[in-house]
Design a protein around this nucleic acid. Structure first.
Length: 504
RNA sequence: GCGCCCGUAGCUCAGUGGAAGAGCAGCGGACUUCUAAUCCGCGGGUCGCAGGUUCGAAUCCUGCCGGGCGCGCCA
């Protein structure tokens, strides 16, 4: 947590105790506004009993500005009870910060490249690619909000066996013949076949349009064809040897579990790892401070070899970061559907969007930890779309917009005489945003944002139900709460690429 | 066989050393109101199992069980 109002409390406790302090929100109201473990953390180092030390802290805590009283609890927690002045200050600071509230947490701004989606142009985007994009784009947005400069890139595998197989499959269809062995057979193959032109070019255009519809815009598109020409220059920088009639990269000496072949024995053409190396070198040469690769769990074996490439090329492997997300499994009609483009038995992003909408799709795909497999029951996702948490959060935003539309000339303010329980909870929730945004960014975990947004909406709906805003003695303060809450909700939604409607 | 990931309420999942949570599903309540797509209440747990570290473990370490993904000339 890192709002200024919170930081000042933490700093004061650190000075008082002479050691590290953390503030937590207790689950029970009788445990105060905030609880600190400072006595537990420091007592051991000082060689005193935790509870005794906690007593000392609790006794002098009221000397800290805005601390009304303090109690010792459990093994040595200190529960802090804050005065109304703290809430006024905290809310005032949020209003003052406006749209910037919670941002700019980066200590040093970096140039970061996020390579994501990069699906082969051999078929429409699947829900797996959608998770890649929703996750990668949310991470990119978090990085930008923290103050980093981000470039989004899509790597197009426009050459190689798969795209040739795709071309042959389409051409076979045009001639009315059976597709080749292991060829592509989906319905979309027929559609591509029915219009003239190169199937790969056309597929790529469809992917670009689909991504735009999904609100993901790329700054650059790199073709494997272009990288291929840089392989010859990159390979000499590697640690290689000849064996079995081919050239190998000694990646096992750099953390990989086995070496990787660079050249195909049969015809001397470059293999995929050679392109990986050249592409990584190409990225580093563009001067990025950090390279993020967003890959599905079925590519987790790439982590070690990509880092090995960075090391062999003379770069710090820590600057090359691979973000792995678990796969998206689909269930429809009680049957699992495997994501395989070649068999054509797969749910495409377009189908998911048609059924549950862009907002729900983006929300749902980032709202779980990236290490967690997502199981989507396609039928159920549609039926329950109105109960999707995204609507709950959007509704809170729209409700506030409604209040603000009806508001007269009263100026929103942080000053309130004696905030009620619901108002206190809401303010404490809002001041969490900076910490949530920073942690979500540093851990590359945007799902923390959606989890937090639900809590904010929860606290607001509760406040709304218990207290009228307009035409009350507390109108200025409550309007301030509304403005701040709307801003925080809008920020959270934007960070995951979901719209914040003013009306629903 | 080896590597990565997962195992928390009936279901879907948050919670990476500090007092076990949310949503959905179930049951019962609340609309002369700034939006009832909301709110209030109730029930529900050997945090996969067993050890270890620690004042303190769902969280860290070891082993095991169960599930997912992957394991050089495809990308």
């Amino acid at each position: 947590m890192a709002s200024r109002a919170l930081d000042r409390l933490t700093d004061a406790l650190v000075r008082m105790a002479g050691g590290p302090a953390e503030l937590d929100r207790p689950s029970k109201a009788e445990h105060g506004d905030y609880a600190t473990n400072v006595a537990l953390r420091v007592a051991a180092a000082k060689g005193v009993a935790p509870r005794d030390f906690a007593q000392e802290i609790a006794a002098s805590a009221p000397e800290i500005e805005h601390v009304e009283r303090a109690e010792v609890a459990g093994p040595g927690f200190v529960n802090l009870f804050l005065s109304p002045s703290w809430y006024a200050q905290a809310l005032g600071e949020i209003l003052e910060s406006g749209k910037d509230f919670g941002g700019g947490s980066a200590e040093t701004a970096e140039r970061v490249q996020v390579e994501m989606v990069s699906a082969n142009p051999t078929g429409p985007l699947t829900v797996g690619s959608a998770r890649n994009g929703a996750f990668g784009d949310a991470v990119a947005r978090l990085l930008e909000f923290a103050g980093h400069e981000v470039e989004r890139e899509y790597y197009v595998n426009d050459i190689g066996r798969q795209v040739e197989l795709f071309r042959e499959s389409v051409e076979a269809r045009r001639r009315g013949e059976e597709p080749p062995e292991d060829g592509y057979t989906g319905e979309y193959v027929s559609e591509i076949a029915s219009v003239p032109g190169d199937p790969v070019d056309r597929m790529l255009e469809e992917i670009k349009a689909e991504l735009m519809r999904f609100r993901i815009t790329f700054d650059s598109w790199v073709l494997q064809r272009e990288i291929e020409g840089e392989i010859a220059a990159a390979l000499p920088k590697l640690d290689t040897y000849e064996a079995e009639g081919t050239t190998w990269a000694r990646t096992s000496a750099h953390g990989d579990d086995k070496d990787r072949p660079l050249v195909r024995s049969s015809d001397g053409s470059f293999l995929y790892y050679a392109s990986d190396v050249a592409y990584a070198e190409n990225k580093f040469a563009r001067g990025f401070d950090r390279l993020l690769y967003v890959l599905g769990a079925d590519h987790h074996g790439y982590v070690a070899r990509l880092k090995a490439a960075a090391a062999m090329l003379g770069h710090d492997p820590a600057r090359l970061e691979v973000l792995i997300y678990q796969l998206v499994h689909l269930v429809e009609g009680g049957q699992a559907r495997q994501a395989s483009k070649r068999r054509g038995d797969v749910v495409f992003l377009s189908e998911l969007i048609d059924k549950i909408g862009i907002d729900a799709a983006r929300w749902y795909l980032v709202s779980r930890g990236h290490d967690q497999a997502i199981e989507i029951d396609v039928d159920l996702a549609r039926e329950r779309s109105e109960k999707n948490p995204v609507f709950y959060v959007q509704y809170a935003h729209a409700r506030i917009a409604g209040i603000l539309r009806n508001a007269g000339g009263v100026e929103p303010s942080g000053d309130g005489a004696a905030p009620t329980a619901e108002e206190r909870e809401l303010v404490k929730r809002l001041v969490e945003l900076p910490g949530i945004a920073r942690e979500a960014c540093e851990r590359r975990g945007p799902h923390a944002v959606t989890t937090y947004a639900i809590r904010v909406a929860d606290d607001f709906h509760r406040f709304y139900h218990h207290h009228r805003v307009l035409g009350t003695d507390e109108e200025a303060f409550r309007l301030g709460l509304c403005v701040a809450t709307k801003s925080v909700l809008a920020r959270c939604l934007d960070l995951v690429g979901v719209e914040a409607p003013d009306r629903m």
